[in-house]
Lab assay of single mutants.
Amino acid sequence: GKELVLALYDYQEKSPREVTMKKGDILTLLNSTNKDWWKVEVNDRQGFVPAAYVKKL
């Protein structure tokens, strides 16, 4: 099944490779191999968020 993460904080994208999320959002985790930036999918968009801003559910 898909792995989900919870947004712990708001995050505003700073580049086209990133995505914006709001605290409390549930996101689909696509890739967590990089310890600093995790790739997630939110609202049919894929991009990176800081790993410290999310936690695995």
Results as ranks from 00 to 15, higher is better:
6 L>T: 07
46 Q>D: 06
21 M>L: 09
34 N>M: 09
41 E>N: 05
12 Q>V: 14
32 S>Q: 10
27 L>M: 14
44 D>C: 13
14 K>Y: 05
31 N>Y: 06
20 T>L: 02
28 T>S: 08
17 R>E: 14
57 L>H: 06
10 D>H: 05
4 L>F: 15
8 L>R: 05
36 D>E: 12
45 R>Y: 05
28 T>Q: 12
20 T>E: 04
5 V>Y: 09
25 D>C: 06
25 D>T: 07
17 R>T: 11
9 Y>Q: 14
51 A>L: 02
32 S>R: 08
15 S>H: 12
30 L>A: 03
5 V>T: 03
22 K>Y: 12
6 L>M: 14
44 D>V: 07
53 Y>R: 07
46 Q>A: 11
6 L>N: 02
20 T>Q: 05
54 V>L: 15
29 L>R: 01
51 A>C: 08
57 L>D: 04
3 E>C: 15
18 E>S: 07
28 T>R: 11
11 Y>W: 12
20 T>D: 04
35 K>E: 11
46 Q>I: 14
55 K>L: 12
22 K>V: 10
37 W>N: 02
7 A>W: 02
50 P>M: 03
29 L>Q: 00
36 D>F: 15
38 W>D: 00
32 S>H: 09
51 A>S: 14
20 T>M: 04
51 A>I: 03
9 Y>R: 15
52 A>P: 08
33 T>L: 10
5 V>S: 03
2 K>R: 14
9 Y>G: 06
51 A>Y: 02
47 G>E: 02
17 R>Y: 14
24 G>M: 03
10 D>S: 08
50 P>D: 02
50 P>S: 02
22 K>Q: 10
40 V>N: 00
21 M>I: 14
3 E>V: 14
49 V>L: 03
38 W>E: 01
51 A>T: 06
54 V>G: 01
19 V>P: 01
42 V>A: 15
34 N>H: 11
25 D>H: 05
34 N>E: 12
1 G>L: 13
5 V>G: 14
4 L>K: 11
36 D>V: 13
27 L>F: 06
14 K>R: 14
47 G>S: 02
48 F>Y: 15
28 T>L: 14
20 T>K: 04
19 V>M: 12
17 R>L: 12
13 E>M: 12
21 M>C: 07
29 L>Y: 01
41 E>D: 07
11 Y>M: 01
13 E>I: 06
57 L>E: 05
4 L>I: 09
28 T>A: 11
32 S>K: 07
34 N>C: 11
20 T>F: 04
45 R>I: 08
52 A>I: 11
30 L>F: 04
44 D>N: 13
38 W>S: 03
35 K>V: 12
10 D>P: 06
33 T>W: 09
48 F>R: 03
47 G>D: 01
51 A>P: 06
25 D>P: 01
25 D>N: 07
20 T>S: 15
38 W>M: 04
25 D>F: 04
47 G>L: 05
6 L>E: 11
28 T>I: 15
23 K>N: 04
23 K>V: 08
33 T>A: 13
17 R>K: 12
15 S>A: 09
3 E>G: 10
52 A>Q: 13
23 K>C: 08
7 A>T: 04
40 V>L: 04
50 P>R: 03
29 L>V: 06
9 Y>H: 11
3 E>D: 11
8 L>D: 02
50 P>T: 02
44 D>I: 06
54 V>Q: 00
57 L>T: 07
1 G>I: 13
45 R>E: 05
49 V>S: 00
34 N>W: 07
40 V>Q: 00
31 N>G: 07
9 Y>F: 14
13 E>L: 07
37 W>C: 06
51 A>R: 12
30 L>I: 15
36 D>I: 14
43 N>R: 14
3 E>W: 12
33 T>S: 14
45 R>N: 06
45 R>P: 00
6 L>D: 01
4 L>D: 04
51 A>W: 02
25 D>R: 03
19 V>T: 06
7 A>H: 01
7 A>N: 01
51 A>Q: 06
11 Y>P: 00
37 W>L: 04
37 W>T: 02
27 L>H: 03
4 L>C: 11
50 P>L: 03
26 I>G: 01
33 T>D: 15
23 K>E: 07
4 L>Q: 10
50 P>A: 02
22 K>R: 13
50 P>F: 03
42 V>I: 15
41 E>V: 10
57 L>R: 03
13 E>S: 15
46 Q>W: 09
54 V>I: 08
57 L>N: 03
22 K>I: 08
44 D>K: 11
52 A>W: 10
21 M>D: 00
35 K>D: 10
3 E>A: 12
9 Y>K: 13
7 A>F: 01
36 D>G: 09
31 N>F: 07
19 V>A: 06
1 G>C: 15
55 K>N: 07
12 Q>H: 13
5 V>R: 02
24 G>W: 06
33 T>R: 10
57 L>A: 04
53 Y>Q: 07
16 P>Y: 09
1 G>F: 15
1 G>P: 14
14 K>G: 08
42 V>N: 15
42 V>F: 15
4 L>V: 10
28 T>E: 13
41 E>Y: 06
17 R>H: 14
14 K>A: 13
8 L>E: 04
16 P>R: 10
24 G>T: 02
26 I>W: 05
28 T>G: 08
40 V>S: 00
55 K>W: 08
5 V>D: 01
51 A>V: 06
52 A>T: 10
41 E>H: 06
1 G>N: 13
47 G>C: 03
43 N>M: 13
54 V>K: 01
40 V>M: 02
26 I>Q: 05
41 E>C: 13
7 A>E: 01
14 K>H: 09
38 W>H: 02
33 T>I: 09
14 K>C: 11
17 R>V: 11
27 L>T: 01
17 R>A: 13
43 N>I: 11
17 R>P: 06
20 T>C: 06
27 L>N: 01
8 L>A: 04
56 K>Q: 10
29 L>N: 01
30 L>W: 05
11 Y>C: 02
49 V>Q: 00
54 V>R: 00
32 S>I: 06
8 L>S: 03
15 S>T: 12
12 Q>G: 07
47 G>T: 03
18 E>C: 07
48 F>Q: 03
25 D>K: 03
6 L>A: 06
2 K>S: 10
41 E>G: 08
46 Q>K: 11
38 W>C: 04
57 L>F: 09
3 E>H: 11
18 E>R: 04
15 S>Y: 07
14 K>M: 11
53 Y>D: 05
10 D>Y: 05
27 L>A: 08
39 K>V: 14
50 P>C: 04
21 M>Q: 02
43 N>G: 15
57 L>G: 04
37 W>M: 06
21 M>V: 10
40 V>F: 01
1 G>K: 14
11 Y>V: 02
22 K>W: 09
10 D>W: 04
13 E>K: 13
28 T>M: 12
11 Y>A: 01
24 G>I: 00
35 K>I: 10
47 G>I: 04
25 D>A: 07
4 L>A: 06
3 E>N: 11
18 E>P: 05
56 K>P: 10
44 D>T: 10
32 S>N: 09
55 K>D: 08
24 G>F: 05
49 V>A: 03
13 E>R: 12
49 V>Y: 00
34 N>Q: 10
14 K>L: 09
31 N>C: 13
30 L>Q: 04
38 W>Q: 01
39 K>T: 08
36 D>H: 14
56 K>E: 08
55 K>V: 15
57 L>V: 11
44 D>Q: 12
1 G>E: 12
38 W>L: 05
47 G>K: 02
11 Y>T: 01
11 Y>F: 08
5 V>K: 00
46 Q>R: 11
41 E>Q: 14
45 R>G: 05
21 M>E: 00
10 D>E: 06
36 D>K: 13
10 D>F: 04
21 M>K: 00
14 K>P: 05
26 I>P: 01
30 L>S: 03
37 W>P: 00
19 V>E: 00
38 W>V: 06
28 T>H: 10
18 E>F: 06
3 E>K: 09
45 R>H: 07
51 A>H: 03
34 N>P: 04
18 E>M: 05
34 N>G: 09
13 E>T: 09
18 E>W: 04
21 M>P: 00
49 V>R: 00
39 K>F: 15
31 N>V: 08
7 A>K: 01
1 G>H: 14
2 K>F: 13
